[in-house]
Design a binder for these strands. Structure first.
Length: 597
RNA sequence: GGGGUCGUAGUUCAGCUCGGUUAGAACGCCGGCCUGUCACGUCGGAAGUCGUGGGUUCAAAUCCCAUCGGCCCCGCCA
């Protein structure tokens, strides 16, 4: 230890105030402060120290005429030393007020200063700038978290969760914890596995969500449950995806979909109100999944801008343009986006989009520019007057506009145009308007067909209730059945979603059967749920919201790592601790595990 | 698994096309001076495995190959 003082586990005094809270009306008070040295400005005679704690910064003044000892101690301090200071709060004299600092009206004239702990020079500055490489920030995360920005983010997260807990408590929800060591279930993401020492060769799985457990809590009669639940998924990471994340998980007995959505709206509104002081004015619009796909080509539309998809199929009826004619002959579709005249793409940008579509989706982009003298572009000459007129009508084309079209199977074309739409939105900064556009996407299909597995898979999860109006089609054409499911979307990001669940044992078995589980398999994997449904299980439903993504929105950041204290890198590594790491062979032996990697 | 991009002083970067003195700058750090600074000023100084390994060459931060890692994206994530 570099300090000359004998090591003491206690500071020389307790603080009376946080540095960042001192204001003009504190002038005259004697205060005791504890904090980190942000900067020291040593004038030889006078020394100024900016002292930082979690509430902010205040300027200390060390004058040898006030205290020679404090001045001498002050000359020893360096960045990030943890020091204790006593002194008097004084109003700054005319001309020395710092309008940039909330505490800039005052300063603390120090009469005693002690170095509580020294600091090696920090590997990166602890002030506002975030220019440092993320890997280094993560390696020294405890220093990165000292930065005001990260302090702000994590406290915003606390505020959001507190607001949500208060709101749910006010609405009769009971917080109940569920196991972290649980059962591996098929379907869904890859599980994180935990070996069981006392049951060699057997494994727990960390929960991907408490879905089944909360349903059992409804069977148990808690009526309204919630939990801030840690969830684990062993999949590749993204800017907004970490292997462990938190959900606000809630479930209620006998709700209509509107009841769950209303609770969720109130919950999110409470978080925005508490953290940002803004009203987001629910209820949000409800948009059927089919409409979202038709208009936006995606199930989580960003509604801050237009550029909606237009179905041009009938407009090109009888076209002599061979590409379109072939598509129409196969009963497929042509969709387009009208890029209005105020947004101009260069020929090169159009070529780049075309090339991306070709290489990634094996699709072509047909585009035309509308001018006063007619249509221009590589394919314009193949298009006749009638179809031009009809397309112009459908897409509301005006001179200056660009019409970008993709032809093929509607189910494939619409997502591709949806992707182009988002690119255009980003290209012309339509997605950085500062607006907040909430909506619910409802009436999701219950199933979709998985080409990979050659069977039906659940769009949501296997416990989602079918829309009662569609029970009849379950047998005939299950792909047409809608689910009682709903997703909340904000600016093109899914914040959360949920559904009414199946509470009938027979219906649950039937759905599992449609998903390819025999009765035997279903019993083996989900027997406890199916059994539970036989004992007076009430109707129930709920939803789950991504805490981390919600906090990203509240903090205005694009990276989930900015709202987590100790996140992992893209390779799921923690550069600070070195996790994951190899373990002692004896540990493996105890667990009956042989490593082959 | 695939694509893009980056890796040079503690930090942020320049240098790399077109190989050639001792690899530079800023901030930070260390030392001196300085009583109203708050991006303090000023004088001086230290600081490099050019991610790693291999290859080409008289000579490699620079060219080639491989590999590791960060970030972003696709696949994947009910």
């Amino acid at each position: 230890m570099a300090s000359k003082e004998a090591y003491s586990p206690l500071p020389p005094w307790q603080r009376t105030d946080y540095c960042g809270t001192l204001r003009a009306n504190d002038a005259g008070r004697d205060v005791a402060l504890l904090g980190w040295v942000q900067t020291r400005r040593d004038h030889g005679g006078l020394i100024f120290i900016d002292l930082r704690d979690r509430e902010g910064i205040v300027q200390l003044v060390l004058n040898p005429e006030i205290s020679a000892g404090a001045h001498e101690a002050g000359s020893q301090v360096r960045s990030e030393y943890y020091i204790a200071a006593r002194g008097k709060v004084v109003l700054r004299s005319e001309g020395t007020v710092n309008a940039e600092l909330p505490t800039g009206q005052v300063e603390v004239v120090v009469n005693a200063l002690e170095i509580v702990n020294t600091s090696a020079p920090p590997p990166f500055p602890i002030d506002g700038d975030t220019a440092t490489a993320e890997e280094i920030r993560l390696k020294y995360r405890y220093l990165d978290l000292r930065r005001p920005e990260m302090q702000r983010n994590l406290r915003a997260r606390h505020q959001a969760i507190k607001a949500i807990r208060d709101y749910l408590d006010d609405n009769g929800f009971v917080e109940i914890e569920t196991p972290i060591l649980w059962k591996s279930t098929p379907e869904g993401a890859r599980d994180y596995l935990v070996p069981s020492r006392v049951n060699p060769g057997k494994f727990y799985a960390l929960p991907q969500s408490p879905q089944l457990l909360k349903q059992l809590l409804m069977v148990a009669g808690f009526d309204r449950y919630y939990q801030i639940a840690r969830c684990f998924r062993d999949e590749d990471l993204r800017a907004n995806r970490q292997p462990e994340f938190s959900q606000i998980d809630l479930e209620m007995t006998c709700p209509r979909p509107d009841d769950v959505m209303s609770i969720a709206e109130g919950m999110v509104a409470a978080a925005f109100r508490r953290v940002l002081g803004v009203e987001i004015n629910p209820p949000f619009i409800r948009m059927p999944y089919a409409e979202a796909m038709e208009r936006f080509g995606i199930d989580k539309p960003d509604m801050r801008f237009g550029l909606e998809l237009k179905n041009l199929t009938s407009a090109f009826e009888g076209t002599s343009f061979k590409v379109f004619a072939d598509v129409l002959a196969r009963g497929q579709s042509i969709y387009g986006i009208n890029l209005p005249g105020q947004h101009q793409l260069s020929r090169r940008e159009l070529d780049e989009i075309t090339e991306t579509l070709r290489s990634r989706y094996a699709m072509g982009l047909a585009w035309v520019k509308v001018t006063d003298s007619g249509w221009q572009g590589p394919i314009a000459k193949y298009l006749g007057d009638g179809e031009r007129e009809r397309a112009a009508g459908v897409a509301s084309l005006k001179p200056g506009d660009t019409l970008m079209m993709v032809a093929g199977d509607a189910a494939a074309v619409r997502p591709v145009l949806g992707e182009i739409r988002l690119q255009l939105g980003a290209r012309f900064n339509l997605d950085s308007t500062g607006e907040r556009k909430f909506l619910w996407v409802v009436d999701f299909p219950l199933f979709e067909y998985s080409e990979e597995d050659k069977r039906l898979v659940s769009v949501n999860h296997p416990f989602t209730a079918p829309n009662p109006d569609d029970l009849a089609v379950l047998d005939k054409n299950p792909l047409d059945a809608r689910a009682l499911a709903y997703d909340m979307v904000l600016n093109g990001q899914e914040l959360g979603g949920g559904s009414i669940r199946i509470h009938s044992r027979e219906l649950q078995l039937k759905v599992l059967e449609l998903l390819g589980f025999s009765r035997e398999e279903a019993t083996d994997r989900f027997g406890f749920l199916v059994d539970a449904l036989t004992y007076g299980a009430p109707p129930h439903g709920g939803c789950a919201f991504g805490v981390d993504r919600l906090c990203m929105m509240l903090c205005g950041t694009d990276s989930l790592r900015d709202v987590l204290a100790f996140p992992k890198t893209g390779k799921a590594v923690d550069p600070m601790s070195g996790a994951p790491s190899e373990v002692d062979p004896r540990q493996l032996k105890e667990l009956a595990i042989k490593v082959t990697a």
